[in-house]
Nucleic acid binder design. Structure first.
Length: 586
RNA sequence: GCGCUUGUAGCUCAGCCGGAUAGAGCAUCGGCCUUCUAAGCCGAGGGUCGCAGGUUCGAGUCCUGCCAAGCGUGCCA
């Protein structure tokens, strides 16, 4: 409907250009939106006001010329000029009824779009370090990222979901060493645990399993482990130096092969947990991309070489720097440290080069808001590599703050005390969890109220939408219990009996769904879909209370049943897109 | 200090590319279950869109300054 009207306006503009009313060179942007007030028809355009200046007339006069130039079309029953020069379109009521038939015919396909057809887009999200289980902060990225990916797919894009696994670097060494130290405790060695190690209970679990499987294979005496290790922070030392020395000790005492095994056990167990967790949350990936792969296959050296050739690298204080400040970053960044090791940023340059080489039309990164300062340097790197940096879209997700009623839930990663995503899902349930995470715009700071999300009352918006779906199913069951049968065709033939204001309103809202879906996808804003669902559910509940569906008149009864089944289809399509259940009874 | 994000009803938030009288939910108050599920519906009250300027036919929306909150500002990842 909307696209059709836009096309009509375009034809009108073209006609006015040939008539000489408008400059043929003039670039015209057709602006059409849903009228907010039904008095203003169904769609409104401000075209005349936009073009008035260029055409050197007043908006209302121009509007009249535009209206005169619009071709006849049976979708439109009336066109009015109103206010300062709005052009208001009134849809033909008969055409409005057709939406019920369209929805029925398209079924699960209704609302899908083809605007992304032929375009490949990659969405990278979550990508949490595999040093521990996912917590509630990652949950928002997971829910938002998968919703964005699913929306893009619904809009016709060829979508590839990817998780970047930071399986290299110092944090992983700290994890491996933490696992080993806990393992030594399992073996019966007595030694202090570093303040900067991973203290979470899950590390003990991994160590326990390792001990069960490998016995004392990795055991070394505590005296040897602790010999000449600089003091930890609580003892007045430096916690970084302390842990680094322990990492080195682990490597020398175990040898690289055994150390590698311990490292791998930690990585594998945590990654398996993360994958499992995400899958239960309805989040799936096409690729798990390993950072270690980049180091092993020479990608990093290759990327740095390209920067070198382009003249963006220089040496200073023993380190190698990337001159990102020449490309908009606030300062230059180290890529190779003075100890010869490459930085995380160097990996990221290679990773983004790899993404570009894979030929995506668009690359979407979903990051926590605390990484926002990182965007300029990555974009700078892409430019330096000669790539089109506009291909990269970084979406930031603000942190979610957990509340239980009025009380803030405290979290601390250091102490290992945090609410995991798994705990949250168990407490709140997958449906409410996803709904709440996606309900807000991603860049909004979010308060996640556990009490509200778990409540089974009218305060909880998830049930409100699901209830609408269940109610339609319930009506159909009632029909059956009364010994009546649905007559689909009879209903379709008499859709014109749907003249109540609630019915007209619902028809309009149903026809909006494809536009909402498309906009939510293109703008990366799944919350728009949630708001639409609440609106649709609200209109349905009002309708339900105002009118009886199972009336004696078979024609009206079936027309109404067809309408509410159309509502059910749209609810189901949108909810399943968001991986939220559509209960048939509640 | 600088940078990014945010500021809309008592609370949590929508508000599409600048458009017509700024909207929901919760909370508060008043109604609706012998009829398809009351996890629902109907109604009422509640606003200086952080503040001050500017741009124009028109600003919650764009620009500038200020105020407030969160985050960032490592040879950490």
């Amino acid at each position: 409907m909307k696209h059709k009207l836009e096309h009509l306006l375009q034809q009108a503009v073209a006609a006015l250009k040939t008539q000489g009313v408008l400059d043929p060179e003039l670039a015209v942007q057709i602006n059409l939106e849903r009228a907010r007030d039904t008095q203003h028809g169904d769609f409104a355009s401000n075209l005349a006001m936009m073009l008035a200046k260029a055409a050197r007339t007043n908006p209302r006069q121009l509007a009249e010329k535009i209206v005169a130039a619009i071709p006849q079309d049976n979708l439109v029953s009336k066109i009015e000029i109103a206010g300062p020069g709005f052009i208001n379109f009134f849809a033909n009521p008969d055409s409005q009824f057709q939406i019920v038939k369209q929805i029925h015919d398209a079924g699960p396909e209704f609302g899908l779009s083809k605007i992304g057809a032929g375009k490949r887009v990659q969405v990278e999200f979550v990508s949490a370090n595999p040093t521990g289980p996912l917590h509630v902060g990652h949950g928002r990225g997971a829910a938002y990222g998968s919703a964005v990916a699913d929306l893009l797919e619904a809009a016709g894009f060829d979508v590839e979901r990817e998780y970047y696994v930071n399986d290299a670097g110092r944090q992983m060494d700290i994890l491996a060493t933490s696992v080993w130290l806990r393992y030594l405790e399992e073996c019966g060695e007595v030694l202090p645990f570093p303040s900067n190690g991973y203290r979470g209970e899950y590390v003990r679990d991994i160590a326990f399993n390792l001990h069960k499987k490998a016995g004392n294979d990795y055991r070394r005496p505590a005296e040897l482990v602790l010999e000449d290790i600089p003091a930890d922070e609580p003892q007045g030392g430096d916690k970084e130096k302390h842990i680094d020395a322990l990492i080195e000790r682990a490597k020398t005492l175990l040898g690289m092969e055994q150390y590698g095994s311990v490292f791998q056990v930690g990585l594998d167990e945590i990654l398996a947990d993360i994958k499992d967790d995400l899958q239960e949350f309805g989040v799936g990936y096409q690729h798990w991309f390993s950072e270690r792969l980049l180091m092993d296959d020479g990608s990093i050296q290759q990327a740095l070489q390209r920067l070198e050739v382009a003249g963006y690298l220089y040496k200073q204080d023993g380190a190698i720097w990337f001159a990102s400040s020449r490309l908009g970053d606030e300062k230059d960044r180290v890529v190779i440290r003075d100890n010869g090791q490459s930085t995380y940023f160097a990996s990221d340059i290679a990773y983004h080069m790899n993404k570009l080489d894979r030929g995506f039309d668009q690359i979407v990164n979903i990051w926590g808001a605390d990484h926002h300062g990182y965007i300029p340097r990555v974009k700078a790197a892409m430019q330096a590599l000669g790539a089109d940096e506009s291909k990269l879209k970084v979406l930031l997700v603000q942190f979610a703050v957990l509340y239980r009623g009025d009380e803030k839930v405290q979290m601390s990663t250091r102490s290992g005390e945090f609410v995991t995503l798994r705990q949250l899902r168990n407490e709140v349930g997958k449906d409410a969890c996803r709904f709440f995470y996606v309900m807000r715009k991603s860049e909004q700071h979010m308060d996640f109220d556990l009490k509200l999300a778990t409540s089974r009352t009218n305060e909880n918006p998830v049930y409100y939408v699901q209830y609408a779906h269940a109610r339609v199913c319930s009506v159909l069951r009632q029909l059956d219990e009364k010994g009546r049968a649905r007559n689909l065709n009879l209903g379709m033939e008499h859709l014109n009996l749907l003249t109540e204001s609630h019915e007209t309103e619902l028809l309009g809202t149903l026809s909006k769904y494809p536009e909402v879906l498309e906009r939510a996808a293109v703008q990366y804003e799944p919350h728009q879909l949630i708001h639409y669902l609440r609106e649709l559910a609200n209109q349905f509940h009002s309708y339900y209370n105002a009118h009886q569906f199972l009336v004696d008149d078979d024609r009206l009864c079936n027309a109404r049943l067809n309408l509410i089944c159309a509502v059910r289809h749209v609810l189901a399509n949108a909810l399943s897109l968001l991986k939220i259940h559509t209960p048939e009874a509640m």
